[in-house]
Structures are given as structure tokens and as C-alpha cells.
Amino acid sequence: MLKLIIENISKTFKDKQAVTGFSAELSEGVYALLGPNGAGKTTLMRMLADILKPTSGRILLDGKDISIMGDHYRDSLGYLPQEFGLYRNFTAVRFLSYFARLKGLDKQEATTRVDEVLKLVNLQQDRKRKLKTYSGGMKRRLGIALALLNDPKILIVDEPTAGLDPQERVRFRNLLSEIAGDRIVLLSTHIVSDIEYIAKEVLLMRQGTLIQRSTSEQLLDSVKDKVWKCTVEQHALPQLQKHYKVGNIQRVETGIEVRIVSDQQPLADAVNVTPTLEDVYLYFFNEEVIDGVQAGML
């Protein structure tokens, strides 16, 4: 049984606390790290990927500190950063083979494994092309292939679906749940629809701290009676947005239909509706409402 324990870790950049006292215990399954931009998701993941040292606290895999495990820890790690470059003049195969060796696969393994992952992300046809000719989505997919190369027990992917088109996003989600199996998968995102179906648990993160951790059902449950829908006229909208967290806005024949997340009933004709994760997001990250709305509407 795999167990990754994050023990009260913090990371301080010169004057900025990016992660503050974050603790969590992860076992096999898909976890989604959800939080607005600047919440510290990337910083946390970098520490999990062993490329950044925590200012305080430690991370344990099966009871052993990862900074002591070194090679052994990274051997079971697959990491896909939020932003990454590629060697422009390498072909996909060359690039992946290079990393296969870096990940400790021997030559034979490397060849077969490279083929496998290329098939997995649907890039076999473009395997011999130089990476500078790749489109944004193809680069992302190559990155995912890269992370999966060593069949990692711990997979950390930082906003993997950014820049993928809807179809590719669906494919990616399916891929993730397919491979989840007996590994720990931690993915960060600010796109809620990504995690609706696949995440075992959702970790909500704000300003460097873990504010809530629960399954998506529980999360939905927690806002069950707090999502409202009503139709208003155009000119009432700004007023409404000032006082409430307003989600989706939709133009309908009789005016404008808005979705509001609020503890109390906002308007007399507002009716309760079944919540989605987007509403959850809206509920928890009020300051970052604008961000959230944009993310949800992507």
C-alpha cells in the first residue's frame, strides 16, 4: 500500500509565503488540487517532485523522507510541470529515449516503452517529426507521455489540460482514470470540469494552505442548498454581481438567467438547483471570483 505523507510543509520565497503549513496524506487514487492562480499549487508540486526544497516540513513516502531517498524516490516519480520546453531539434522518439535513459530504463526497455507511451497519447504518426513542428496540444501530450515513461507510482501533473482542446481534454481525463490504477495521481487545475468524474478526492487550496479536503460528492453536498438560479433583467446584473457570487450567466428570452451561490436565498424568485463543482469553486474562492468564472467558462 502506497502512502505519501506531506507533513506540514512550507515554502517561503524571499518575501512571499507560497505554501504555508500544508499537510496531507495520500494513498492510491486520483487527487485533484484545486485552487485559483497563485494559490501555491505549482510550488507544492515542485516540492513533491523533488526539485524544490521545502523551507520547513518534510515529505514521506512509505515512511521514508524523500530528500533522503533521492534516486529511489524519483525512480517512482512522474512529473509534468505546468510550463516546460522541448529540445526543438529533437524528434519525439529521440526526446523520449533521452528521458527514458534519464529515468533509468535500459536500452531495450526504453525502445518498447517509448513506443507504448507514444501510442497511449496518440502520437505514433508524428514520432519522427522534429518537436518544433508540434502544435501546442501535441507538446502537452508528449509531456504526458514523458511523465508516464517510467510507469511511475506517483504521478504529479501540473495543470495538464491547459491548452488542450475539449476533445483532447476528454481523452486526457479518460487516460488518467485508465492509468490511475494502483498509483497516486495528483493533478492540479483551476478548471473544475477536469476533475468532476475522475478525482477520488479534491484538495482545495488557497493562499498556500489546504482549506478543505473531501470527495467531490461531499463537496457538492456541502453546497447543496446554496446554489440558486433566477432570471433577472440586464440592468440588475451589476448590482447582483456586487452582492453575490454569480456564476454562469446566460441570455434567455425573458432576460438573463444567472446562477448564484449564496447561503441565503438571493431573490424572491430564485430557485434551488443541483450544484456542480463549478459552484463549489465559486463558493470557496470568493476573492478570486473573477478568475473562477473565467476558468469555468473556458
Binding site: A49, I51, F84, G85, F99, R101, L102
Partner: peptide, 18 residues
């Protein structure tokens, strides 16, 4: 500068053999 350092450093051999 090619933004590939983090990819390399998170691999098994990315901190010594490389």
C-alpha cells in the same frame, strides 16, 4: 533557458548521472 531543467531534475538520474 529552454525550460527543461525541471523535467530533467525530477527523473531518477536527473541529479547525478546526468
Amino acid at each position: 533557458s529552454q525550460k527543461i531543467a525541471s523535467l530533467i531534475a525530477s527523473t531518477k538520474y536527473g541529479k547525478n548521472k546526468i
